[in-house]
Design a protein around this nucleic acid. Structure first.
Lengths: 147, 147
DNA sequence: CCAACTAGTCAAGTAGATTGACTAAATAGT
DNA sequence: ACTATTTAGTCAATCTACTTGACTAGTTGG
């Protein structure tokens, strides 16, 4: 049936709604020079940082794209490149103080956004939803780009 | 908490997983020259067709982008432009026979994809999930573009 | 019946990705 | 131990899906 098709549209719509709410809330808290994609980078960076390759895999993009993204974040003061302790080729990308502040703001914005869902569905169902998704969503493939 | 942040990543990952499965399944059935975006156009076109403006709104893109998309689909034989009965400026974009065949293939692929979710979660929870999403996902905003 | 608006297209520009070629460092094979 | 292959990251060029801006043709309203 078309019901199965509708599910993907719903998931996409829901994801879009939530991501945009978080993005908007984060911007409102003083971090307006970022896109949602950057937030997904931050999520991978906390708490211990990550290499370019790990970021690329997390986002589901090429290393080159990840590298460009990191370069932009370095320029804006959100992350720093540190030498990798055990591999001189690699670099550890880590959040700066500003990066951590932004992450905190994003967490607030996310809580705020989800609160409106809880108001509609109840805490119970939101939790159930989250758990169900955890079981079917293959990690990685984070960005539905190039569709 | 970071749990709220995770929810958006999960939704996005789930949507991505499902959309790609449908896309792949449709391609496997003989329609390999399409992107997922085209599928969302088809969904709006069935059963009665739509104008360029309606397609644009459905996808959350500009009319120009929608127009280009339709042009591509015309070239590939999936849709046709018909004159609008009551407005000589407008055009009704409608599925061709091939367009309908592709839609049927996409439905099959979607059913197949959702079946694997049902195998994990059970019919019950998948239905509950769908209903929950229906209540929180704002329609439109289909494509999380420009992230 | 003229002014303002709407549907769609043409053309050019843009942002975020890609592929390809390269350097330097690590790992594996003999 | 020395060579060969693989891996981490970057530079450069390109691609592509989308945007903004300008326009034509048709519609609506005072």
């Amino acid at each position: 049936m078309a019901d199965e098709i509708a599910l993907s549209a719903l998931l996409l719509g829901a994801a879009s709604t939530l991501v945009e709410a978080i993005h908007e809330g984060t911007a409102r808290r003083g971090f307006a020079d970022l896109r949602p994609t950057h937030g997904f980078v931050f999520a991978r960076l906390a708490p211990d940082g990550a290499t370019i390759g790990q970021i690329a895999e997390h986002l589901g993009v090429t290393k080159q794209a990840a590298s460009q993204l990191v370069e932009e974040l370095v320029g804006k003061g959100y992350v720093e490149r540190h030498p990798h302790p055990g591999d001189a080729r690699a670099k550890i990308v880590a959040l700066t103080e500003r990066g951590w502040a932004c992450t905190a703001a994003a967490d607030e914005a996310a809580t705020e956004a989800v609160r409106s869902w809880i108001a509609v569905l109840g805490q119970e169902r939101v939790s159930a939803l989250t758990n169900d998704l955890r079981r079917v969503a293959r990690p990685g493939r984070l960005r539905p780009a190039a569709w």
